[in-house]
Design a binder for these strands. Structure first.
Lengths: 250, 250
DNA sequence: ATCTTGATGTCGAAA
DNA sequence: TTTCGACGTCAAGAT
């Protein structure tokens, strides 16, 4: 690849302190070209849809992505203060001499308007991203770890199915213990509270009903740890707990 | 305010296609100065902490905020592909001639490394954001609506307390019906699934135990609507449902 | 399309 | 600090 091609693949077209019409044109071009666009400046924001919100004047960073999403970030917080999900239609226009960026979607009907009192910078980036994220340490990893070595749960445990359906939803691992008693296993990748115990209880109850069988069904919660209240609920409901992390500890 | 002061309040210091050392210096200055920093370029990302991930080479947008959070965005998705929450310590350094941005925190121990093969643009923004976000359409709105007019739930309903504590957590609204039977009300601002029914059931059970009383306690779920499975669970557990939205419909 | 559940969920409040 | 529930949760998979 030549240096020229190399630069073209990720060029930045940037305007500093542009006039409103300049800024509007650059944003509109970027939307048209499928670029990733950033606008920094003093603005107000209005949102209306699943909820409603207004945000008075302040300096914010606005990002428009080619997939139709838009993010408004202030100087604090990991989360955007306002946003729209992918699939929205974006427009840049002049509103009484000021840059306004609008995003809309339907189902549900939602609208986001960002009006700039002043634009400090506008950039448009052409993006070339081939790679996908590879992640580990998930609930799926925990499941694989157990299926590779079922006796991590207890001696004689035998998995029979994963994602086994019940009328209350799917059981993560369905199996038998050494005495051929049915075991429903609920997996959580990290420390769990009472909600997970409730989930496991519903599965055990549903199995009990579905199987039309008087035999005891065991419910086993597998996670790195549980909260105190979750442990109380486990005992009260006759459910069990095994401590296990998604990946072997060092 | 003069034009000069006006510009100082939101100046952008931007470098286009900087050499790695130039980029490192600008990022380091920005961190020191408490600026909001953006870096666009071709990079790889590694994360290790609550989970682990790796991301191969591609063009991405990286934002560092003065509160210690960092976000890595690709050209698609509302969510960052990698991130760190507020409160992390950030560094910019040269790694074998390339810009590397690192973010760390403890409790839990987490680390994010972004290594740039090429930097297309670096910007540092000094932010002045005065305004706070005002939202409506929340669960709090729903509570106020009911307390203003309790008979929206049913004729003769009387609220006695909000956030009443039980051993299973706090009940949104605790009250009595026209026959002086105790009523536990659980509020949800939007359509609910089985999890909310489980929550309400736990509260009613806890109340039954806490009150040492044989009188029937009613459990009332208030939301715009419920899923089919949630309705089944309601009936099975002898719980009730009233349809109500956080704001009066038009 | 709706429904269900996981997530490096994040965020805020209370104990 | 831990625990708990809300969130315009988001995102992915199943129906």
């Amino acid at each position: 690849m030549t240096a020229t091609e190399d630069r073209r693949s990720a060029r930045a077209d940037t305007l500093v302190d542009p006039a409103p019409e300049q800024a509007r044109a650059r944003v509109a071009e970027g939307i048209e070209a499928g670029a990733m666009i950033t606008v920094f400046g003093r603005c107000t924001v209005e949102y209306d849809g699943r909820a409603s919100s207004t945000l008075g004047p302040g300096d914010r960073h606005v990002m428009l992505k080619p997939d139709g999403s838009i993010l408004v970030h202030t100087d604090e917080g990991q989360q955007p203060v306002n946003w729209q999900p992918p699939g929205c239609t974006q427009e840049a226009e002049l509103d009484d001499g000021a840059l306004r960026i609008r995003s809309r979607r339907s189902t549900p009907e939602e609208r986001l308007d960002v009006r700039f009192e002043r634009v400090t910078q506008v950039s448009a980036f052409v993006v070339d991203d081939g790679s996908e994220l590879a992640i580990s340490g998930t609930e799926e990893d925990l499941r694989e770890r157990i299926l590779d070595d079922p006796e991590l749960l207890e001696v004689g445990f035998t998995p029979l199915a994963t994602e086994r359906q019940t009328t209350a939803g799917a059981i993560d691992i369905y199996g038998e213990d050494r005495s051929s008693r049915t075991v429903a296993v609920e997996l959580k990748r990290k420390r769990v509270g009472p909600d997970a115990v409730g989930q496991l209880g519903r599965y055990v109850d549903a199995l009990q009903r579905d199987l039309h069988d008087d035999a005891e069904i065991r419910g086993l919660l597998v996670a790195p740890s549980v909260t105190d209240r979750a442990r109380e609920l486990l005992e009260r409901n006759g459910l069990e707990f095994v401590s296990l992390t998604p990946e072997p500890s060092e």
